[in-house]
Every structure is written in structure tokens, then in C-alpha cells.
Amino acid sequence: MSSPLGNELKRLREAKGYTLEEASQQIGITRQYLSMLEKGQRKSASFEIMTRLSQIYQVPMEYLGKFIGSNAQELTENELNTWTQLNKKLEEEIYGNSVNELLTWLKAR
């Protein structure tokens, strides 16, 4: 049994080249929990987890929110690349190197 959100989370993870283990560590959840989300055994996640998913997969939270409802549409590969580039550019302009420091700190948690 899968869900639109689960299917998209799996697609995004695979597009980034992450294993379940790698992605779950970056998000700060167990591999089993991420697997349950991807398989549709969990229909949604907390705001905090959705925020981390958005950051790790570099897509807007609003985009992931669309997959919780029934009118989900996937981003094209070009749109996904555009969002990734925009997010990187904004992070660099707003936070500079502190984003990398924050991500390193989060990974160590």
C-alpha cells in the first residue's frame, strides 16, 4: 500500500542518490520510520520532520504538503533542479557558511 506522499518521498530520495539509511540519518529519524512513510504506512509526519524532509530533499514545504491531499502532481526533473539551485543560492546569500555548520551540527545529533 503506497500513498502519494510516500511515492514522492521515495522518488526525491532516489533522485538525490540517498539510501534509506543515509536519508534517515540526515533527517534525524529511523530508517524504519522513513520506510513506513515511503510505503504509505504513515500518511504524514510532524511539522518538524516535514521541515527536515523539505531541507534534505531541497523542495518547498508547500510542495510536500500537496502530496498529503489528493491533487498531487510531481515536479518535473527540470523544476526539481531549479528548486535545488534556488534553495542553494538563497542559503548562501542568507546564511553564508553557517548553513554548512548547521547541517554538520544536525548530522552529529
Score class of each variant (00 low, 15 high):
R52D: 15
K16P: 00
I94R: 13
R31L: 01
L80M: 14
L12N: 05
G65I: 11
S3N: 07
R52G: 11
R42Y: 03
G28M: 05
G17T: 06
E62C: 10
G65T: 09
L90S: 05
Q32D: 01
T82R: 15
E74I: 01
K88E: 09
Q58R: 07
Q58M: 15
G96Y: 10
S2D: 02
W83G: 00
W83F: 07
R13C: 00
Y95R: 09
L103F: 09
E91N: 08
I68Y: 06
K66T: 13
E93H: 14
S54A: 15
S70D: 14
A72C: 01
L102I: 12
S54T: 14
L9N: 00
Q73P: 11
G40S: 14
L80S: 15
L86R: 00
Y95I: 03
Q26H: 04
E92L: 15
A15H: 02
T19D: 03
E21W: 03
Y33K: 01
E22R: 08
K66S: 13
G96P: 11
L102F: 15
L106E: 02
L53A: 02
L102G: 07
N100P: 04
L90M: 06
S46Y: 07
S44Q: 07
N78W: 05
E38P: 03
Q73T: 15
I68P: 02
Q25M: 01
G65R: 13
E21N: 05
E74C: 03
F47D: 14
I94N: 09
T19E: 06
N100Q: 13
L20A: 00
S98H: 09
Y95K: 10
A15R: 02
R11G: 00
G6L: 12
E101T: 15
T82G: 04
L37D: 01
L80K: 03
V59Y: 04
S2L: 00
E22Y: 04
R42L: 02
P60Y: 13
I29A: 02
Y57V: 05
E93M: 15
W105G: 01
I49S: 10
N81T: 08
V99W: 09
K107G: 13
E21D: 07
K107Y: 14
S2P: 05
I49M: 08
L64F: 06
I56H: 04
N71F: 12
K66G: 12
